[in-house]
Amino acid sequence: MAAKLLILGGTTEAYDLADRLAALPDWHVITSLAGRTADPRHAAGETRIGGFGGVAGLVRYLDEHAIRAVLDVTHPFAAQMGWNAAEACRITGIPLLRLERPAWTAEAGDRWQSVTSWTEAAAAVRQSQAQRVLLAVGRQELSHFVDIETAWFLIRLVTPPAPLPPFYAAEWLYARGPFALADERALLDTWAIDTIVCKNSGGTATAAKLLAARERGVRVIMLQRPARPAGVPTVADGEAALAWLERLALVGLNR
């Protein structure tokens, strides 16, 4: 009988894993999405949308649905879900694996300024005297920059926020990655961008803007990743996650 596997998803890696695992007999795959985007893409297998209600709610879900293993494949900045999963799996004794894409690292020619909070990022925009800023941070983080009067912003999002935050000077651009290098070069040139503000998300889908910035000497204000729970086994790719699940199957968790 197939064992139930909960994937905490929403990332490209999570969808890829669900695609591969849904075709295998050992696992019944359930992918959980936070539900913060309108009309989210459903994953292969079973999909649930919405929060669990904190650690207690997740513990209850794991127990009621007889979950045998959990893969945390949430975004590197979805920190709270990672902490909740670690505690819920500790309480229930259910195996947990974190799949997290490697962070970006600065290379020769990069002009990166690392920050650890959005407040610090907004202060860096002001202190650097940035004039034309590509803001690629997500809808929930826009409020930290809305009061900056000294810079013009090109705000790139997947979907429009409602209502639009009242920036003093801004243009709105709606697009979903991956973004090609040629397009990112053209974007920086067309809009005369001198500064990029973004998260250290890692991966390839949005990395082209960093190469284009390096080529043009554009400043990058980069928010570093939040802390994750210690002691959670972590892998960097889907192949390693599949190998971990194969080992679990060998010890009988799918029986």
Rank of each mutant, 00 (worst) to 15 (best):
I148R: 10
L157N: 10
T11V: 08
I7D: 02
F179R: 14
N254Q: 08
L96W: 04
T11I: 10
Q127R: 10
V29P: 03
A66V: 08
L142Y: 07
I193D: 14
N254T: 14
A205H: 14
S114F: 00
R255G: 09
P226D: 02
V59Q: 06
L154E: 14
V59H: 01
A130G: 12
V115G: 00
K199S: 07
E46C: 06
T206C: 14
T31V: 12
I148Y: 12
G203Y: 09
V137W: 02
L250Y: 02
G45R: 07
A213C: 11
P160W: 03
P161F: 10
I7F: 04
V70D: 03
I30V: 15
W27G: 08
A169K: 14
A236I: 11
G93M: 11
R132L: 12
V197S: 13
N200C: 06
W118N: 04
T105Y: 04
A213V: 11
Q140G: 09
R132Y: 08
D237S: 11
S114V: 00
A123E: 10
A175G: 13
P161I: 09
A79W: 01
V29R: 07
L21S: 06
R48W: 01
G35K: 00
A124M: 10
I94G: 13
P166L: 12
R214S: 06
T116Y: 02
P160E: 02
A240D: 07
L157M: 14
A175L: 15
L33W: 01
L5I: 09
E120Q: 09
T12R: 14
A34S: 10
A44G: 03
R48A: 03
I49E: 01
G82A: 08
T206Y: 09
A69Q: 12
A44M: 07
A122L: 02
Y15H: 15
A123M: 05
L6E: 09
M81K: 02
P165A: 15
A123F: 04
G53E: 00
S143I: 10
A66H: 12
R139D: 11
A175Q: 15
A38L: 08
A22I: 01
E149D: 13
P102M: 10
T37A: 07
I148P: 13
N254A: 10
A162E: 13
L97E: 07
N200P: 09
T195Q: 10
A88T: 04
V125C: 12
C89H: 06
A207L: 11
R132E: 15
A106D: 01
A78W: 04
G138M: 13
F77L: 02
I94S: 13
A124V: 07
A227L: 10
N84P: 03
S201L: 07
R228N: 04
T105K: 11
A66C: 08
R219Q: 13
C198W: 03
E184M: 14
H42A: 09
H65C: 08
V55T: 12
T74D: 08
A186S: 15
D72Y: 05
K199V: 05
N254Y: 02
H42C: 06
E239W: 05
V59K: 01
V146Q: 11
A241P: 07
L24D: 03
I7K: 02
D183H: 15
E13R: 06
R111Q: 04
L62K: 04
T11R: 10
S128H: 11
A124C: 06
Q113I: 12
S32P: 02
E246I: 00
